[in-house]
Structure formats: C-alpha cells, structure tokens
Design a protein around this nucleic acid. Structure first.
Lengths: 134, 134
DNA sequence: AAATATTGTTAGTCTAACCTAACAATATTA
DNA sequence: TAATATTGTTAGGTTAGACTAACAATATTT
C-alpha cells in the first residue's frame, strides 16, 4: 500500500492530477499535455507512464487517454497537498516571492518528511489562521 | 565562478569538509572515511573525486589524501550553512524531532533557493534570537 | 474517403550515480 | 625486510531518467 515514489514519478502524478482537474467533465489526460506541462519530451512521458501503470497508479490503453487510478489519485493528492502547504508557508510565513516559492515548493515537496509536514501545517494553523483551505 | 552542483556532489563536498575539520592539525581526508560517512562504496567515491577534481574543488594525488581547494571549501561551507540553518529552523521553530530534522535538512539543503535561505535566516534572527552562531 | 496533421510509441543513445570483483599501491607488523 | 593488512583504483555492470529520429495510430480537414 505504501510505495516509495521517486521525485520524477511524483512529478508525473502531480501533473496528471492537475491536468485531469481542468475540465470536471473529462478526467482524461493526454501524453502531449503532460509532456508540455513538465517540459519533457513525449517519449519520456510514455516511458514514465509504463512505470506508473506497473505500479497501478495510472491506466491507459495503447494510444489512449491517461487516467489516474484511485490509488494514483490518492498519491497525487498527497503530493499536491505537500506542494500547497510548502508554498503557502514560504509565501505567507517567510515572505518568499511567489515565483521562487512556487519553484522551491516543487523541489521540496519530494523530500519533506511526514513529521515536518505535520508541524508545518500546525504552524500555519496557529499563525495564518483560516485564510483558505489547502 | 558559480557552478551548479548536483545533490550528490554537494554531499561529497559536505562530507569532505566535515571530515577535514575533525583534526585542526590535519585537513586531509581519506577515501575510506568519505565512503564510510556517506555509506557508499569506495569506487563510487573515487569516481566522484574525479568529478570534483575536474571542477577544481578538490585535490588528490594518486593513492593520496584528499584536500578541498579554496573554491571547494567555499562551496562546502555554503552547503554546510544551508544544512545548519534548515536543521535549526526545523527543530527550534517547527519543533521537529532531532533525527528527522537532521534527515530532512540533508535533503532540503540541495534544493532550497538563496532567497528562501535568506528569509529563513531572517526569521530565525527575529524569533530564536542569538542562541548560537550558525 | 483521401490527404494531411497530430499524437503516441518504439528503438536506440546518453549521462549520472551507484554497485561488485579484482587488482595495485601503500602501510603495518611480525 | 618480508608477509600481511589496509587503502585506493580499475574494469565492467546496472538503473533511472532523460533525449532524438523514425514510425504507427488516430484525428482532422479538404
């Protein structure tokens, strides 16, 4: 149930989740859009999707649309959450600029431990109370 | 003057600096000790040292001791500083446990931007004033 | 529906970073 | 100082994650 996922694989999951949320009617995601979003060549995406399929995080038929499995979605949401918490912390607490905060969050989201995440959320709750949900 | 160093290379630099500081009389560092500290096989260290030598960050004669160059030392100190600031922040501000904080700092030190570092230091200065130097 | 354009895959390469096994060089000690 | 132990290197292999070029499948347009 609890894989360890590489940074790269987490990035793919996150991108697929984001793209799948664009149109609430259509959860499907295209290889080209993943490639575009991550600034990566399409064959690299195909290769990554094979890994994701093997891990049961994504479904895709040959030449078809990509979908997150429930498991994949779960993992993607965790990463997304980490990203948002980190970005909010960097911007609201430390006062880091939006662009840099976004970028740092992108990198930190793959390495921060669950404990640190917890403490970060606690801190946000006691400091920047209830601006918005994460 | 301003390379981009991989996480792995930064880890080597940091380890070499730490080992070189053990005995103030003897700044030299052995391959075996680097390997031991980073929990990595010795041939991997040899390979990494070749990269570090090419970049002018380290000197070593065949079968000899390793030394940081002034340039290498400069980079190593930057990484060490990032590590210390992050760890202190995690422990003193967020209340993360020592072990986890140490580990997270090890990973975050390679990805945090200069801007975030600055803000982190500022925050520490205004919050946990003057316990010790970093 | 044919021609064209777009999208996705395959095949083959490359690089960084690790590994083990075997050997060479240096250091230690009997 | 010769035998042994330790240390460092070489050679060769693996894996993850990227790339390009070429092709196959699907979609679009005429």
């Amino acid at each position: 149930m609890d894989f360890e996922l590489s940074s790269s694989i987490e990035d793919y999951l996150e991108a697929i989740l984001a793209l799948s949320e664009i149109d609430p009617q259509d959860q499907s995601v295209r290889v080209t859009d993943i490639a575009e979003r991550l600034q990566i060549a399409k064959p690299s995406v195909t290769a990554a999707l094979n890994v994701l399929k093997e891990k049961g995080l994504v479904t895709q038929e040959r030449y078809g649309k990509v979908f997150l499995t429930p498991e994949g979605r779960k993992h993607a949401l965790v990463v997304q959450r980490r990203h948002r918490v980190l970005r909010k912390f960097l911007v609201d607490v430390l006062g880091v600029g939006e662009k840099v905060a976004e970028n740092d969050a992108c990198l930190m989201e793959h390495v921060v431990s669950p404990e640190t995440m917890e403490k970060l959320i606690e801190f946000l709750e006691n400091t920047v109370p209830e601006k918005e949900e994460l």
